[in-house]
């Protein structure tokens, strides 16, 4: 791959991850924050894959996609859903 295309791809992935992380902090409804956190984990897994580390990418994918999302959703079910100031 050409050098400039690699750099553009890395930069855009990092900016998308930053956007998702800001959203995860700002949303008041906690279910939306959990979905934004799953998006951040997805971008991190693509970045690890792009830097030629498939073991780490597979670990991040399996933990961030299913397990963390489901555990947070169960915790929201047993407490309140909207965060109040």
């Amino acid at each position: 791959m050409e050098e400039s295309l690699e750099q553009i791809l890395e930069l855009s992935l990092t900016l998308l991850m930053l956007g998702g992380a800001v959203c995860a902090c700002v949303f008041k409804d906690l279910l939306n924050a959990v979905i934004a956190a799953a998006f951040v984990s997805l971008m991190a897994a693509i970045l690890f894959y792009f830097l030629q580390a498939p073991d780490v990418a597979m670990a991040e994918a399996s933990i961030g996609a299913a397990l963390t999302t489901a555990i947070f959703v169960i915790a929201i079910k047993k407490t309140k859903r909207v965060e109040e100031e």
Binding site: A57, M58, A59, L67
Partner: peptide
């Protein structure tokens, strides 16, 4: 690529 930890999380 893979290993013990990744396979264990998939089974869970």
């Amino acid at each position: 690529p893979g290993g013990g930890f990744q396979g264990g999380v998939i089974i869970a």
